[in-house]
Every structure is written in structure tokens, then in C-alpha cells.
């Protein structure tokens, strides 16, 4: 088990190195000139040259990359001479347009996105897995058909329809929900949940269909397995066969799908944030891309990648915990 964990962690390091290097190359090989953007529109060529020198943008890309990565773990001094700036770990660079360290900007946006994505993920997983499994148990009944219909509708609705609809109905028509906003969970749990409920509901409505259908078909597939027939042949009640043997056997694929769903929710969170006017990573990265604010784009890509990679890691660990065959190999 320990070797298994170590192997997965090494794989994570490798993946993140590749992703970070790739992104770095991509942005710095891009035709836009970071020094020009940083300097502002009224800069003279000589001034731009000075900025480039000061930031070390004229040095080989490899050197810059190593310094950048080093800064994340150990902090660094950005630029030279007049431009010199102390940036403590984790240093993702400095945003000259906002006159702030990137890490500070990101630290403000990250909890917002994490709250939207993780909260929606928990709600979505609970709803989708339980409705799918119950539909399988009640196969062919009205409950089953109702669930299938709901997934068809939910799966067809886009976020930018559901979000505004919820806002319209619950905020403006019925006036029972507050305007979505971010309050730190520990400051005021109620305000936190109240402010998040519409983004969560939006993502859950749009996203539950996939996992619900998967859970249903997964359960039905498991019910056709030989070992399910064996457990019935032993004399177990159908109820026990379903809720113990079949559910246990379906747990692995369901956990995998749910875990991977977290990555997908990040994408949805970006759109949802902009609909509800929340200042999360989504809005941050969109704004940064428009403004060609490279340090911020770079930081958000890295954070998103880390999120996805660790999500997969957690799924793998879950896998090992519930599947004796994985655990041993």
C-alpha cells in the first residue's frame, strides 16, 4: 500500500512538472510581449527594453522556468535594480497591472471557487448517485421513468439558462434567496450556505444527469453479474442482495466517476461564477486572459491542474480502499 501511494505521488509530481513546463512555454512563446504589456501603452522602446532587462525576460526560457518554479516553493526576488521586489513563497510572480503579488490575488479568489465547486460536487454526487441507484432498484416503475426523464431534462439544460432562471425565480420573484455572494464558511456558516446555494443548485441541476444515468446503468449491469446470482442462490433477500452485494460491487466505478466529476465542475464553476458575479478563479482567469496578464493566467492554470491531479489521486486512493484487487497489486 505504501509503495502504491508513493508511486502515485511521484506520478503527480511528474504530471505537474509537465503541465507547468508546457504552460510556461506556451505563454512565453506567445507573440505578445510581456514587457510591453507590463510597461503600459505609452512606453517608449527604450523603456520596454529596460523592463525586459529588469525582469530577466531576456534570459533563456529554461532559466526563467526554473526560477519561477523555485519561487513557488522557496520564494524569490523578482527583477533587478529598480524593479527588484521581494516575493515570498508561494511566489507566482507579480501582477504589475494590479500592483500586487499574484499569490495574494489568487488567495482571495481560490476560496470562492473552491466553495462553489466542492459544495456543488458534494450535492451533485449525493443526488445523482442516490437517484440512479434508487431508479435501478425500482427498475421499470414510475420512479425509474421519472428519474430518467429528469436526467434527460437536466442534462440538456445549459448553465447560462439554469443560473439566471434560479436567480429570477428565487431571488426576484419569490424573494426567498439572497443575492449569491461569498462569506467565508468560518465567519458565518449560514450566510456562507445562503450565498452559495444558487451556484450549487445550478451546477447540480446541470451536472447530476451524467452520474445519475451512470449509477443506474452501473447497478443494472452489476445485477446481471454471476456473483449476484450466487448471492441470491444462497437465500439472501433481494433487498440485501441489492443494497449490500450489488452496491458494494458498483462502488468502485461510481466513486471514480464522482471523483473525476470534480474536475469537470471546475469548468462549470468558472461560468457559474460569472453568472452570479462571484469573484472566484473563473472570473480572475477570464479577466487575466483578456488583459494578457500572464503571471495570473499561469497561476490559475497551475492551480486548476493541481486540483484535477489531486482529485484523481484521491479517487485512486478510494479505489485502493474499496477494491482488494487494486490494493494488492
Amino acid at each position: 500500500m505504501l509503495r502504491f501511494v508513493v508511486r502515485r505521488l511521484l506520478l503527480i509530481v511528474l504530471t505537474l512538472t509537465v503541465v507547468s513546463f508546457g504552460t510556461f512555454m506556451l505563454f512565453f512563446a506567445a507573440p505578445s510581449d510581456p514587457a510591453r504589456i507590463l510597461c503600459g501603452t505609452r512606453c517608449q522602446p527604450a523603456q520596454i527594453e529596460a523592463v525586459r532587462d529588469g525582469l530577466g525576460l531576456d534570459r533563456p526560457i529554461m532559466t526563467q522556468y526554473v526560477e519561477y518554479m523555485g519561487g513557488i516553493f522557496a520564494g524569490r526576488t523578482l527583477g533587478e535594480g529598480d524593479w527588484a521586489k521581494d516575493c515570498s513563497a508561494p511566489c507566482f510572480g507579480y501582477s504589475y497591472t494590479q500592483n500586487q503579488e499574484v499569490s495574494e490575488i489568487v488567495a482571495r479568489a481560490l476560496p470562492v471557487s473552491a466553495s462553489v465547486a466542492i459544495g456543488a460536487w458534494i450535492i451533485q454526487t449525493l443526488i445523482s448517485v442516490s437517484s440512479g441507484v434508487i431508479a435501478a432498484r425500482k427498475r421499470g416503475t414510475a420512479v425509474d421513468r421519472g428519474t430518467i426523464a429528469a436526467t434527460l431534462i437536466g442534462g440538456a439544460l445549459p448553465i447560462y439558462f439554469v443560473g439566471p432562471m434560479l436567480l429570477l425565480i428565487f431571488r426576484y420573484q419569490l424573494e426567498i434567496l439572497p443575492q449569491p455572494s461569498y462569506t467565508p464558511l468560518l465567519d458565518d456558516p449560514l450566510a456562507f450556505a445562503g450565498g452559495m446555494i444558487m451556484p450549487w443548485a445550478t451546477l447540480a441541476i446541470v451536472g447530476f444527469a451524467f452520474d445519475a444515468r451512470l449509477s443506474r446503468s452501473q447497478m443494472l449491469e452489476t445485477l446481471d453479474e454471476d456473483f449476484i446470482r450466487t448471492s441470491r442462490a444462497k437465500g439472501l433477500k433481494d433487498r440485501v442482495v441489492f443494497w449490500r452485494h450489488a452496491l458494494r460491487a458498483s462502488a468502485t466505478p461510481l466513486a471514480t466517476s464522482a471523483g473525476l466529476g470534480l474536475g469537470g465542475l471546475l469548468g462549470g464553476a468558472v461560468v457559474t461564477e460569472s453568472i452570479f458575479g462571484l469573484n472566484g478563479l473563473g472570473k480572475l482567469s477570464l479577466d487575466a486572459i483578456t488583459a494578457r496578464n500572464l503571471p495570473i493566467v499561469m497561476a490559475t492554470v497551475l492551480i486548476a491542474a493541481t486540483f484535477v491531479v489531486f482529485g484523481t489521486f484521491i479517487v485512486d486512493m478510494l479505489y485502493a480502499a474499496i477494491d482488494p484487487r487494486v490494493r494488492l497489486s
Binding site: 454471476d226 442462490a233 460491487a249 477494491d323
Partner: peptide, 16 residues
């Protein structure tokens, strides 16, 4: 009445 099946690998629950 009890039953013994053909393929004991698929007929036993893999997780128990």
C-alpha cells in the same frame, strides 16, 4: 436446494 456454478471466479463476490 443449493447451486454450484460453472465459473467460480465470476460466481464469487470479488470484494468480499
Amino acid at each position: 436446494m443449493a447451486m454450484i456454478f460453472q465459473d467460480p471466479l465470476t460466481a464469487l463476490h470479488p470484494y468480499y
